[in-house]
Structures are given as C-alpha cells and as structure tokens.
C-alpha cells in the first residue's frame, strides 16, 4: 500500500521532533528535567489510553491498574533480572490483564465500563496489599537502580515514539478501520463482519501493555514501591482529563492536553496540595461539559464547518450546472 505524502511528512516531522527532544537532558536538569519526565510520562500513557478509548468511546479508568502492574513487574524481579527483561514482563502482564478485563467487560458499555475499570485498579491494589502483608512481611518493595532522571526521560521518550508509531500503524490497518466503525455504530460493525469483541480486546491489550511499560519505567523513581502509590486512582483520572482536554480524534490530540495540564498540575500540587483533588474534579467536569471533543476536536469542527460551507456551495452550483 502506498503511504500518502502528508503522512510521510508528519511522520518525518514527528521523528525529527523526538530527536530534538532527546537532547533536552543535555541542556537542562533538576526541576525542569523532572517536569519533562512527568510530561513525557503522561504523553506516553495518554496517547496509549486514547488508542483504545478514542475510537471506541469507552472511557477506561484502568490506567492505574496497568501502571501498577508494570511498576510491580519491576519491583518484584528487579534483583534477579536485567531491566529489558522487566520491560517485557510488564508488557506481558499489562496485556494479559487487559485481555482478562476485556473479556469480562465485553457486554459492558458506557458508565458500567467506567465503573468496572475504576473498581479494578482498587481491587488489584487491595490484593497486592493483602498478599504483601500476609506473605511478604512488609507493605512495600525496594527498587534500587542506577537510573537517573535522564535515563527515565529517554526511556519514556522512546516509549512515546513507539506508542505513536503503533497508533499510526493501527490507524492504517484493518483493525483501525474496524475500531472506527465500532465507535460509530457497533451494530453496523457486526453486520459488516467486524468481530467487535476481538478488535476491542486486541486494542485494549496494546493500550494496557504500553501503560504497564510506563509504570515499569517509573518504578526506579519511586525506589520504595507501595500499592497505594503504584495503583493510585489519581493516575487514571489524570490520564482521562488530559487526553480528553487534548481530544482523542487524532493520534496527537492528547499531547495538546498533556503539556499544559502537567505544567499547571505541577504548580497546583506544589502550591495548593490540599485542594488538588477538588481542582482536578472541577477541571474534569469543565472539560466534559465545555469541550467534549477536546481542544483539537473543537478546532477541527470549526475548521471543517468553514470548509464544508465552501464545499457545499460548490456542490450546489455543480448540481445546478448539470
């Protein structure tokens, strides 16, 4: 299949951008580098989240579950296996969890799916706590590595690039078309021959595996891993807020939300630590209410409306000319 010229250009620009970003740790450190790690973390997770939730319109609050599973993949095996192997374990664990959740939630839609996925992170966190206090002796696990913020940044940048490439490939594939059809009308999807369950589960697994890898990469930063931190439901909510703020119609949509929101959140949690949850809740409501398609979706709609006005006037003149 031939790749359209504008997609080649976008791809080139994206890779060039990533290459430039790779130099960032050489020119900055401390606060700004930490902030960049956070931005890169949410860039990866939100884009991965939108791979599934964008086309299917199913809002998943399972991000914390995948993230935690990835973090624990590292925490459990860090002393016995090299880091790349830990990443692979996180991939497998995230994908497996996603497949199980996918199978369990096949018949759920809308708010039921949201609630199930929210409960899931909480449940797994509780199970891990229970196992650790009964069999592990301590509530947490230590993760000591030689990684600096720079390493984490580079790994997250690489992950983000892989997520984008995957998203791009999916969009060009039958799976991507299948998901767009499902997002439009699931009954039609089934009647044109789409195995809706399979498509949903495959994409959820891809998305979940990426989020688990993000969790694995972040484990060294925490150094002492507890279930509360690894399975923090706040992660799930932040991901949804940022991705929806940016918009999920385009692959790069969530980025538009991640960058400003991470900066603002960093400021807020630094200056008003006790009000963070309230402010997040308000932000969430505002986004869903005011910008259901996100910033990018809103702009696109405006743009398209202007274009189609021009086009439809053309079409009518052509019609009359017949």
């Amino acid at each position: 299949m031939n790749i359209p010229r504008n997609e080649i250009l976008t791809l080139g620009a994206g890779l060039a951008g990533a290459a430039v970003l790779a130099f960032l740790p050489l020119v900055t450190e401390g606060f700004w580098l930490s902030l960049s790690v956070n931005i890169m973390l949410y860039a990866a997770i939100c884009t991965a989240w939108a791979l599934f939730s964008g086309p299917t319109h199913l809002v998943s609050l399972a991000s914390a579950a995948f993230f935690g599973v990835g973090t624990y993949s590292v925490a459990i095996f860090v002393d016995v296996l090299p880091f790349p192997a830990l990443i692979l374990i996180a991939v497998a664990a995230g994908a497996l969890l996603a497949i199980l959740v996918g199978l369990a939630t096949l018949r759920l839609s809308g708010v039921y799916f949201v609630i199930f996925t929210l409960g899931l992170a909480e449940l797994i966190g509780q199970i891990v706590t229970w196992v650790q206090t009964n069999f592990g002796g301590a509530i947490g696990l230590y993760v000591f590595t030689d990684f600096t913020e720079t390493h984490l940044y580079w790994m997250l940048l690489a992950l983000t690039v892989v997520v984008f490439l995957t998203g791009w490939l999916v969009n060009r594939s039958r799976l991507g078309l299948a998901l767009r059809i499902i997002g439009n009308d699931e009954a039609v999807a089934r009647h044109v021959g789409v195995d809706t369950a399979r498509a949903r589960i495959i994409l959820f697994a891809v998305s979940g595996a990426f989020i688990a890898v993000a969790g694995a990469i972040m484990a060294p930063r925490y150094s002492y891993i507890t279930p509360d931190a690894a399975f923090n439901p706040m992660t799930s909510f932040l991901v949804v807020i940022m991705a929806l703020l940016g918009g999920t119609r385009r692959l790069w949509g969530p980025l538009v939300g991640v960058v400003p929101f991470t900066v603002v959140m960093d400021f807020i949690s630094g200056h008003f630590p006790n009000q963070t949850a309230v402010i997040m809740g308000l932000a969430f409501l505002a986004i869903v209410y005011v910008l259901p398609d996100g910033v990018t979706g809103q702009l696109e709609t405006l743009f398209r409306r202007r274009c189609s006005l021009d086009k439809s006037s053309l079409a009518t003149t052509a019609e009359e000319g017949r």
Binding site: A178, R180, I181, V188, V192, G193
Partner: peptide
C-alpha cells in the same frame, strides 16, 4: 437507516467491503 456518521461516504462503503464476505 444506520450510517457511520463520522465517516465519509466512501469510507462508509469501504466499511462494507473489508470485513464481510
């Protein structure tokens, strides 16, 4: 009638060609 509202008319028809018989 059930069309795929966010897709173009060409894509709507392609949808029928890719996964079915």
């Amino acid at each position: 009638v059930r069309v795929l509202p966010s897709m173009s008319s060409l894509e709507n028809v392609v949808a029928g060609a890719v996964f079915g018989h």
